[in-house]
């Protein structure tokens, strides 16, 4: 099993790309096998096409254009998101990754008759989000209510196992952070990633 890192930032050399690098370094140091999806580098199109919407109740087959991503998702025992927070949540390219890939037959099984869904990500035992925020904690947590965090901590967790752990590693107030605070966050990112990596390695044994 691998740790699948899904990364979304348009600018290489950005602070978020440094976060990604430390996540990968930490996971590898912990002994995990790391797989990285870089949505911008892949030129991912986040817009759900009309045909996909029409067939949303149909089970996806391997000839689907996103079948490669689906296989990588199924091979993961941990799912890690690295992204900046825009308007309270992940950038559109990552929201579209979820809209398009987390569908019937991949992340869930849809029971049309009973209007229920059953999660298919029981193999994912760790969910983690490394998210930067330009604004301070009080704006994000108290005023906006962190919809991006809830997407993973509440929605995705329901698709996984009851044993799945959720790790939230945020940086708030990036716009006003000095070099010391940035370095401190990067160090904590790597430390958390090492722990995630160790857990994945332990599960493989």
């Amino acid at each position: 099993m691998t740790v699948l890192v899904v990364y979304a930032h348009p600018v290489e050399g950005s602070f978020v790309s440094a976060v990604r690098d430390r996540v990968i370094a930490g996971l590898s140091a912990g002994g995990a096998t790391v797989d990285v999806i870089d949505l911008y580098a892949d030129g991912f199109d986040p817009v759900v096409p009309e045909d996909d919407w029409r067939s949303h109740a149909a089970v996806r087959t391997d000839d689907h254009p996103l079948a490669g991503y689906a296989q990588r998702l199924r091979a993961a025992d941990a799912l890690v998101f690295v992204h900046p927070t825009w308007w309270g949540g992940a950038p559109a390219i990552l929201k579209g990754f979820v809209d398009r890939l987390f569908v019937n037959g991949v992340a869930l099984t849809l029971d049309v008759e009973r209007n229920r869904i059953r999660g298919r990500l029981g193999h994912v035992r760790d969910l983690a989000v490394f998210a930067t925020h330009g604004s301070p904690w009080r704006i994000n947590a108290l005023f906006e209510g962190e919809p991006g965090k809830l997407l993973v901590s509440r929605q995705f967790r329901l698709l996984c196992s009851w044993r799945t752990r959720f790790s939230w590693v945020p940086m708030y107030g990036l716009d006003r952070a000095d070099a010391g605070q940035r370095a401190e966050y990067l160090a904590s990112v790597e430390a958390r990633a090492v722990r995630l990596g160790r857990r994945s390695a332990a599960r493989r044994r």
């Binding site: 986040p46 817009v47 759900v48 825009w86 308007w87 949540g89 950038p91 559109a92 390219i93 929201k95 579209g96 979820v98 809209d99 987390f102 919809p147 809830l150 997407l151 509440r154 929605q155």
Partner: peptide, 17 residues
């Protein structure tokens, strides 16, 4: 979708606002 805005609308906020 997934308790939020479809990506095309989320991106409208990201890019226009």
């Amino acid at each position: 979708w997934w308790s939020g805005l479809p990506a095309i609308l989320k991106g409208w906020l990201d890019r226009v606002l």
